[in-house]
Design a binder for these strands. Structure first.
Lengths: 200, 200
DNA sequence: AAAACAATTGAACCACGATTCATTTCTTTG
DNA sequence: CAAAGAAATGAATCGTGGTTCAATTGTTTT
């Protein structure tokens, strides 16, 4: 006998896998899922199309994984932020603020995560993400207490409110929103949300 | 010479076109856009696949048209309802009520209109629909007056809130929601929305 | 260096479903 | 009824892009 996978071999493989994931993220952040063909990812990852199948069982699986990673990250950010909030008002404020600013800063990615048409396995992941947001915000609301409405419904409503107001802004065909526009939206959404939570 | 389109000919053609549209609606209401292949529509319309191209330039165009019709109808219903409301509270109530009940009554269609993955031309139509909802509710809010927040933002928020809370319920894989569940959701959403509008 | 095995390549393959089009069937008029 | 023009048919075509795989290249051990 004469071959056995070694430390370095394994590390290289891991690096390559990570490289493909990174490449996929880049392609998606640049042109959305629609542009993330296996061929395009291969070019960005500087490997062949076939090679991708050494590391991922299918395109859908690759996209699902990359989506899940990005979604997990976004979720952590929101969860971390609301965890620090001491009042319902603060939850409303930080959710709106973080959500909108991050979305605008990474418009294409935000559009891909929230709105773009995606293959079915990715769509499941998206539902997870949305439920995750609602769960994180809901938990925070439960912690600070004080609403008669089920926290879950309130949390979802907040997510929905912010998301719906981002639809036009995130449209890839639309021009970058002006800073004023953003500030106005944040203020309006914060007021709306705070008010919905019964805070003055 | 020996042929010229006659009254009856034209009527027949119109009937056939309408039949294809109706068939498309049925297929979509039963299995969503994904199931609305040209072949499936042809079967339902009792004609050949090729025949559909006599009346519609492409599948996407057919789907877009049918979507637009259904969306227009839904929009009329909401617009008609909020037009009768005299206070912000009433707007909130009727929007939530009508939206949720109609969605649950026609779950598959609602899912198709709001959530399902659709071809790009249909997606544009969907954005129109959402803007339409926001515009109708926004106009109603403007009419009754009384919010400092831009009515457009408030209206979108309401649409987003309700929509987001319907996501799990409309999932075609999920079982039919129980009446209790629906009533609870309507009450919660109404309270949330009314509260957001600053009404007690 | 050679054996043994894994990874890489990219062109060929394939699945899928929309679309086309030669042929047939229907409608109308002289 | 025959001629002329539409419409209907459905099997063949086509485009697209994911997936496979035989050949090649790379890596590890003796």
């Amino acid at each position: 006998m004469a071959y056995r996978a070694t430390q370095r071999t394994r590390a290289n493989a891991e690096a390559r896998r990570a490289g493909i994931e990174r490449a996929t993220r880049h392609v998606i952040a640049r042109g959305g899922f629609a542009s993330a063909s296996v061929a395009a990812v291969a070019v960005e990852a500087d490997c062949s199309a076939g090679s991708i199948y050494t590391y991922f069982s299918s395109r859908d699986e690759l996209l699902r994984l990359v989506f899940a990673q990005a979604a997990g990250h976004e979720l952590e950010v929101i969860a971390g932020t609301v965890a620090e909030a001491a009042t319902a008002s603060q939850i409303a404020e930080s959710t709106v603020e973080v959500f909108v600013r991050r979305a605008v800063a990474g418009r294409r990615l935000a559009h891909a995560l929230l709105l773009e048409e995606v293959p079915e396995p990715v769509q499941s992941e998206r539902l997870r993400l949305r439920r995750g947001y609602a769960a994180a915000i809901g938990a925070a609301l439960d912690r600070v207490g004080g609403t008669q409405i089920p926290a879950e419904v309130v949390a979802r409503s907040i997510v929905g409110s912010v998301g719906e107001n981002l639809v036009d802004i995130l449209d890839p065909a639309a021009p970058n929103p002006s800073p004023t526009e953003i500030e106005t939206l944040i203020r309006a959404l914060t007021t709306f949300t705070r008010s919905a939570l019964g805070e003055t």
